[in-house]
Design a protein around this nucleic acid. Structure first.
Lengths: 230, 230
DNA sequence: CATACAAACTTGTCAGACAAACTTACCGGA
DNA sequence: TCCGGTAAGTTTGTCTGACAAGTTTGTATG
């Protein structure tokens, strides 16, 4: 349940050098700038990111705790290489956590302006319909935003923190998969269904549809060849 | 999905100063040596733990990511204070994760010597029957070992890592609650039931009984007065 | 008594240094 | 030629000292 490691969302606090470096490296991994398995020598990073070894090492340590990097004593940091087993484990957990999030969101949908926010998110998603040419990263941000919103609607900080941790790796995995056109249409339809069940306040159905969605996403990811995984 | 932050279980690797410090502080929080809300100035810790600021700060950062400490810029680290809302969130997540673990364990119980290990763990638990006088910490270790075993039987590394993270806080919460005699007997009985359903290979029942157990545990914890929470 | 200001303290970051461990390159022997 | 071992080079783990930025504490003033 990280609090200080959160990406400066709600905290509005001054951002320290460590936060900045964590963000940059994480971004680099998500965007594929640092490839899985690539080693990240401290010397290179201090030059590249303009920070001293102290904050850098703290950042690396934090990213290792998050599962983005791996650190071995006297061998340094490298971008974590995900095996098929890792991905299976990851999605098994995502399924229950996001399912739980959807159920909680359904129960709380009438509070505040939750329903409105969810409808807006659906509108943002459907705007992508047919636009298969558009920037894949932008689409994925939109996709991630939808899932983040569900988590946020669930109103459970522990759940949110854990999902944030799984987020980086899950993101990386979908990077290649999501570009396929039909996968995109399917995904949009499933998002609509999830939103509908939540808006209906049906916790059980919301959980079911979310879990199915995550499973489909997993199936799609598993079709990716091994070298894309890690 | 921390790998390097794990308490040197499988990795058998050399332990660095950071690992040592992380372990000591975490232990201190679990055992109540550092009270919730207590501030932990770097100067004091460097003296107490005989380590320089570099590794110490790395350790603090790691523990903050784990949710054991809270760090505010220019104000330093303090033992995280859990609110009732935090506890509710925590147990809501524990319920689904441990439930999932029990279900997975049931599905895999026939592989290897899993069944035997589980039966042994049950035997260890029942040995506490009636011995309400005995060391509370030792009993809790036994309790934690049972839950850890279920996680381990589930054979999902991501799940195991997430649970390890929730572990420290969950442990702290049960510290006071578990000493009550009837709670202990109830807990032992529930453990027996969980083990039985897993050994029967019934994933659905295993999940149900585990979730009920976690919920009962939550109810017991919530009876604790606020100042014990943090 | 409340407020404003200054001193004291703590944290965030940097730079330089060195020991420990890992990598790589080289060399002699089978 | 291939193999194994040694030495040099590189990288990490940790320490020390230093200083700026921000916070906390204490005091004096209205």
């Amino acid at each position: 349940m990280p609090r200080s490691s959160a990406p400066d969302l709600g905290g509005r606090g001054r951002s320290t050098a460590v936060d900045r470096v964590v963000h940059l490296i994480r971004q680099g991994v998500k965007r594929g700038r640092y490839a899985p398995g690539q080693r990240l020598p401290e010397a290179d990073l201090t030059r590249e990111l303009q920070v001293s070894r102290g904050p850098l090492r703290e950042a690396l340590s934090r990213l290792a705790a998050e599962g983005v990097l791996e650190i071995e004593p006297y061998r340094g940091a490298m971008v974590r290489r995900l095996t098929r087993a890792d991905v299976e484990d990851l999605y098994q957990v995502r399924e229950v956590l996001e399912g739980q999030a959807a159920a909680l969101a359904a129960r709380r949908i009438t509070e505040g302006d939750r329903a409105e926010r969810l409808r807006q998110a659906v509108a943002d998603m459907t705007a992508w319909r047919g636009r298969n040419d558009a920037d894949a990263f932008a689409y994925m941000d939109s996709n991630a935003a939808f899932h983040d919103l569900i988590i946020s609607l669930a109103d459970n900080q522990v759940l949110a923190d854990l999902m944030a941790q799984l987020g980086t790796n899950a993101f990386r995995l979908q990077l290649t998969n999501v570009m396929r056109a039909n996968a995109r249409e399917t995904s949009i339809r499933e998002h609509e269904e999830i939103a509908a069940t939540i808006l209906a306040g049906d916790a059980r159905k919301a959980e079911t549809s979310m879990r199915r969605h995550v499973r489909h996403s997993y199936d799609a990811v598993m079709k990716v060849s091994d070298d894309l995984l890690g």
